[in-house]
Simulated scan of single mutants.
Amino acid sequence: MLFIEYPKCSTCKKAKKYLEEHGIEFEDRHIVEENPTKEELAEWIRISGKPIKKFFNTSGMKYRELGLKDKLPEMSEEEQIELLASDGMLVKRPLLIDGEMVLAGFKEAEWPE
C-alpha cells in the first residue's frame, strides 16, 4: 500500500496514526519531494471512479493563489492532471493507494472499508 503525505499536514498525521494503530503496512512518500506523475494521477483517478476535482487540495493556499475554483471548469481533463502533477501542494492529501482502490483525503469513517 502506498501512503502519500505532506508530513506537516495534521490530517496526514491522523491518517498515518490510524494506519499504524491498525497494523497496516505501507510505503511512505512525501508529496512535495516526490510529486505524483501525470501517469500515476491519471491511473489513480480512473481507479477511484471519482471526479478529478476530488484530487485537488481545494483548501490549500496554492489552489486559491492560482484562482483554480474559476479556472478548473474551463480546463480539459488532461490539463487538470498536468496541473496536479506540476505541484504536490495542489494534490489532496493524504492519498492511500493499493492496486484496487484509491482514497483521497482522510475521513476515518471511510477507511475501514
Rank of each mutant, 00 (worst) to 15 (best):
I31D: 06
K71G: 07
G23D: 04
E77K: 13
M75Y: 14
E78G: 11
T37D: 07
I4E: 01
C12F: 04
C12G: 01
M75E: 10
R64H: 13
P51V: 02
P51E: 10
E33D: 10
E20V: 15
Q80A: 02
P7D: 11
E78K: 12
Y6K: 03
K54I: 10
L72N: 02
K14E: 06
I81Q: 00
G67A: 14
Y63K: 07
I81S: 01
P51F: 05
G67P: 06
L2W: 03
L72K: 03
L2M: 13
I81W: 01
T37R: 07
K54W: 13
R64V: 03
S10N: 13
I52Q: 03
Q80K: 06
I52M: 04
E25Q: 12
Y6V: 08
P51G: 08
K14G: 07
L41S: 00
K38N: 11
I47V: 12
Y18M: 07
H30R: 06
F3H: 03
K69W: 11
R64C: 06
T11H: 14
F26C: 08
R29F: 03
L66P: 01
R46E: 10
K38L: 09
D70W: 09
V32M: 11
E79S: 12
K71P: 06
E39A: 09
S59L: 15
E79I: 12
E25W: 00
E33S: 00
L2E: 05
P51D: 13
F56T: 03
Y63F: 15
K38A: 09
E78N: 08
E74N: 15
V32C: 00
T58P: 12
E74D: 13
A42W: 01
G23T: 09
E25P: 03
A15T: 12
D70N: 15
Q80Y: 05
H22G: 12
E40K: 02
G67Y: 14
E40T: 04
A42P: 00
E77N: 11
Y6N: 14
M75H: 07
V32F: 11
E27H: 15
I81R: 01
A42V: 01
E5H: 05
Y6M: 14
R64L: 04
Y63P: 00
K17I: 13
E25R: 05
L2A: 06
Y18S: 08
L41Y: 01
